[in-house]
């Protein structure tokens, strides 16, 4: 099982080759959902004019940054290198796992708190719900490692 821990100034992810492949498959399958997700692209303003201005000035940069975050995660998983993340890199991983979770949850039809009870224990253990739990675990561990700084 993958391990995430603090190593001085860095965050270390110890993942087996199989776990790297599994995370890459998850990334590959969920990235297209990110493009369509409403939760990933919330409005900033109620006012239509201000919202259009926000979209014109800000949203393109946000999308570019999101793509860069995801690319960074993919590149490190594809490499055979030991995964040691600076704080900025770990933040990119955190943001990436968060958007992947949002996109997957939206696809699963999750709309309100207490959604866990919508699904049976068997469903929780199988994909795609098990994928959501795995992403949550990675995110929790990254937060914990970053908070130890």
């Amino acid at each position: 099982m993958a391990q995430i821990s603090r190593q001085g100034e860095l965050v270390q992810l110890r993942v087996s080759r199989g776990e790297r492949k599994a995370l890459l498959r998850i990334l590959e399958r969920l990235e297209p959902l990110v493009e369509e997700s409403r939760w990933v692209r919330p409005r900033a303003y109620e006012d239509e004019g201000l919202e259009r201005e926000y979209e014109r000035l800000v949203v393109g940069d946000l999308e570019q940054a999101r793509a860069q975050d995801l690319a960074q995660v993919r590149d490190l998983l594809e490499s055979d290198q030991r995964i040691l993340l600076s704080t900025d890199q770990a933040m990119a991983w955190l943001r990436s796992f968060n958007v992947l979770r949002l996109a997957l949850a939206e696809r699963l039809g999750i709309k309100s708190d207490g959604w866990e009870d919508q699904f049976s224990p068997q469903e929780h253990r199988r994909p795609p719900l098990a994928t959501l739990h795995l992403l949550s675990w990675v995110q929790e561990e990254l937060v914990e490692a970053l908070e130890q700084a």
């Binding site: 939760w39 990933v40 692209r41 900033a44 940069d61 940054a65 968060n98």
Partner: peptide
């Protein structure tokens, strides 16, 4: 405030200005 909302959006949180 708009910068703050953009930063929250960059982190995947649902945020608006009012």
């Amino acid at each position: 405030a708009e910068v703050s909302v953009a930063q929250l959006h960059a982190h995947g949180l649902q945020a608006t200005l009012a």
